[in-house]
């Protein structure tokens, strides 16, 4: 395996560069996935049938908590990657761990939110609107859940194997994924919640 030391560790081998490009392409597909969900959301948002509308059920407090928590986690994973670049394994691991904890916090609030919706009669079977709302949020939430599992696996590997071209590459790609989920959330926050509450 040829290692190019002039580049950051995560880019240092050809295999690593391929993986990063491949992941960007995958994110392109993910953008289409969420774009389809958003397009469907906008189509169905007013089709509430006999169920509630967004304005009836959205609550600002949990949504704000989710937003702040997730945005912070995007910042901390950025710090994590920075720590990785300067070779500080300990700091990197701490930042990654904080990121995942924040992710778990986000997920906790989201689960609370879902239970709450179910209680007030906005379950997935209520109307076209609730179906697409919960599917869009749920798809994002499922991505976060998978991210938690994936991130844990990466922390364990960096801990055991140290910062190698391989583990650095995985960590970097994971950070791309995490930032992407954050961007999607910003769209959800603006166009689902804020627009719905206005």
């Amino acid at each position: 395996m040829k290692i190019d030391h002039s580049l950051p560790l995560e880019y240092s081998t050809e295999e690593n560069r391929l993986k990063i490009l491949g992941f960007w392409i995958f994110l392109g597909a993910e953008i289409m996935l969420f774009a389809t969900l958003f397009a469907s959301y906008f189509t169905l948002v007013d089709r509430t049938g006999s169920g509630p509308s967004g304005a009836d059920i959205f609550e600002i407090t949990p949504v704000l908590i989710e937003t702040i928590v997730l945005l912070t986690s995007s910042f901390t994973i950025g710090l994590g990657v920075h720590a990785m670049r300067i070779g500080n394994k300990k700091a990197m691991l701490s930042f990654f761990a904080i990121t995942l904890l924040l992710g778990a916090g986000f997920l906790g609030v989201e689960i609370y939110e879902f239970v709450h919706y179910a209680h007030i009669g906005a379950g997935i079977q209520t109307s076209a609107f609730t179906a697409i709302l919960l599917t869009t949020l749920g798809t994002h939430g499922a991505h976060v859940t998978l991210g938690l599992l994936w991130g844990t696996a990466i922390i364990l590997q960096v801990k055991k194997r140290g910062l190698t071209p391989e583990t650095a590459n995985k960590s970097f790609i994971f950070s791309l994924y995490w930032h992407f989920l954050d961007v999607v959330w910003i769209f959800i926050f603006s166009f689902v919640y804020l627009k719905g509450m206005m």
Binding site: S40, L44, R47, T48, G49, S50, G51, I124, Q125, T126, S127, A128, F129, A131, I132, T135
Partner: peptide, 10 residues
């Protein structure tokens, strides 16, 4: 669910 049904907004 009611994505494509003819009732409940589908």
């Amino acid at each position: 669910t009611h994505f494509f049904t003819t009732t409940n907004g589908g």
